[in-house]
Each structure stands twice: as structure tokens, then as C-alpha cells.
């Protein structure tokens, strides 16, 4: 509990630094390509078109999902997946890949995973904007439900940060964690309601799938963009579950992080 407060205070105090550092982080990862930051958009677009082709045409034969055409349905959910995927993978690498450079700086280490995740927010916002424009012309114009988007955006950042506090500590101790996460994330893409709707599954299996907190995020984004419902109110029990999970992960992550952070350098 005390560790949690420490980490939380550090994030608030150093938020300015998180913002500034995340820009350099983005620069550093895209510097060496000719198209630079454009890759942050090109990559997702290529993936979206492949999934559309395979799942939209190949497997489902353009059947709509609950009256929503497949393309629009998938787009509204997958847009946040790239943030989730990159956030989890890069966030877990954050400490061991940066520590050499960052040890002995005037800021606490818990800022590192935060700014690495934060740097993924910029391409996400651009991609989100593009998706919004596409949806305008694809029959889903801007609606009052857009107002709930910031809630899910904050929710996904909080979740990613809590997860990365745990994974970045563990993967500094044993880098196997990184490998493990890669397969988990590949699996979760299919276990979240992104490429196919789980509504045909039996009720209990749907409930099992909803344990995955990313389910909440993806559905929230979808309901906001397609204008279905006030998702977080309509499913308030689910919201409650989600935030409890985030708090538990955050407290556990902070505990681990604070316990080990003095010794991160020694583990390398």
C-alpha cells in the first residue's frame, strides 16, 4: 500500500518529465528509418487490411455482426489493440533496456515504464483520428457517445502502467518473461473481441473471456466509436471488476518495483 502511494506520487510529480521523455523515446525508435514516425501508422494499417481480408472476406464472407458491417466493427475495436500490444511489450522491456542509460538520474525509476508507454499514445491518437474519419464516411458519424472515449483511454493507460510495473521488474530479473509475454499477447489478440464476436459462444464461456481486462477496453472503444451505449454505466459491474483489477495489479506492481528497484543494476 505504501509502495503504491510512493509510485503514484512519483508519477504525478514527474508528469512533465514523462511527457518530454516520451517524445525522445518515440524519436529514438523511429529515427533510423526513412519513413520515420510514419511506420507507427503504416504497420497497423497493413495489419488491419490483412485481418479485414482474412476474417472479413475469407472466413466470415462479409456477414455483419449485430447489424454492424464487419469492417467497421473490427476497426472500432482493433484501433486500441496496437496501443495495448506495444504498451505491454515495450513497457516490460523498459527498465532493462534503459537502465544503463538512466541509472543515476534525478528521477525515480518508476517513471521509465510510464514514459515508454506514454510514447505509444501519440501514434494511437493519430490512428484513432484516422479511424474516426473513416467511420464518418462508413456510416458511423460522430455521436455523443464519443464523450466516453477519454475514460477508456485513461483506463487503458492505467492498466498498461500497472501491468508494466510488474512485467518490467520481472523481465529485468529474468528476460524469459519477455518471451512469455510475446506469446501471451499473440494469444490475447484472438481471445479479445477484436477479430471475431464471442457472442455466439455459450454464456459461461463469454464470462470467462471477460476476465481478460482488455475485453473491457476493446468493447468500451467500440461502443464509443459506433455509438452503441454508455458502456461503462450499462455494465457497471464489469467496470467495477475492471478497476478493482487495475488497483490490485497496481499495488502488486508497485510493491515489486519498490522492493527491487535499488538492485536493478545488479541483475544485468
Amino acid at each position: 500500500m505504501r509502495a503504491g502511494i510512493t509510485v503514484l506520487m512519483e508519477q504525478i510529480k514527474y508528469f512533465y518529465l514523462v511527457r518530454r521523455l516520451s517524445v525522445y523515446e518515440l524519436k529514438s525508435t523511429t529515427m533510423n528509418t526513412y519513413l520515420g514516425m510514419a511506420w507507427e501508422l503504416i504497420n497497423p494499417m497493413i495489419q488491419i487490411s490483412i485481418f479485414w481480408f482474412v476474417f472479413g472476406y475469407g472466413i466470415r464472407q462479409r456477414e455483419p455482426i449485430e447489424d454492424v458491417p464487419f469492417f467497421q466493427w473490427m476497426l472500432a475495436g482493433i484501433v486500441v489493440w496496437f496501443l495495448i500490444n506495444n504498451g505491454v511489450l515495450k513497457g516490460s522491456k523498459a527498465i532493462y533496456s534503459k537502465i544503463k542509460m538512466l541509472s543515476k538520474m534525478n528521477f525515480p525509476m518508476s517513471v521509465i515504464p510510464n514514459y515508454v508507454i506514454f510514447s505509444q499514445l501519440y501514434p494511437h491518437l493519430v490512428l484513432l483520428l484516422i479511424v474516426m474519419v473513416v467511420l464518418q464516411f462508413a456510416g458511423y458519424p460522430i455521436s455523443v457517445y464519443y464523450l466516453q472515449l477519454p475514460i477508456y483511454m485513461f483506463a487503458v493507460m492505467a492498466l498498461l502502467f500497472s501491468i508494466s510495473l510488474i512485467t518490467s521488474t520481472l523481465s529485468t530479473i529474468a528476460q524469459d518473461v519477455q518471451m512469455f509475454l510475446q506469446s501471451i499477447m499473440r494469444m490475447l489478440l484472438y481471445l479479445s473481441p477484436i477479430l471475431w464476436p464471442p457472442t455466439r459462444l455459450p454464456e459461461w464461456l463469454q464470462m470467462v473471456m471477460m476476465i481478460n481486462p482488455f475485453y473491457y477496453i476493446v468493447e468500451g472503444y467500440r461502443q464509443s466509436l459506433l455509438g452503441g451505449e454508455w458502456f461503462f454505466i450499462a455494465n457497471w459491474e464489469y467496470s467495477l471488476y475492471f478497476w478493482s483489477l487495475v488497483i490490485v495489479l497496481f499495488l502488486f506492481g508497485s510493491y515489486l518495483h519498490v522492493k527491487f528497484r535499488r538492485h536493478f543494476v545488479d541483475f544485468l
Binding site: L17, Y24, K27, S28, K100, M101, K104, N106, F107
Partner: peptide, 26 residues
């Protein structure tokens, strides 16, 4: 501490490294 190539981000330019380092020092 000054050591040979201590704490430089190899992908960024020299100027960006200066800015980054100073930023992190507060």
C-alpha cells in the same frame, strides 16, 4: 560520473542526447 560512452542513446543524435540528458537531470 564520467566514463567512456556512459549513458548515451546510440540512436539519437549528439544534440538530442544533450537535451535528453539535461532534461533527465532536471
Amino acid at each position: 560520473l564520467i566514463a567512456v560512452n556512459a549513458g548515451l542513446d546510440k540512436k539519437l543524435t549528439g544534440r538530442e542526447n544533450i537535451e535528453l540528458k539535461l532534461l533527465m537531470l532536471g
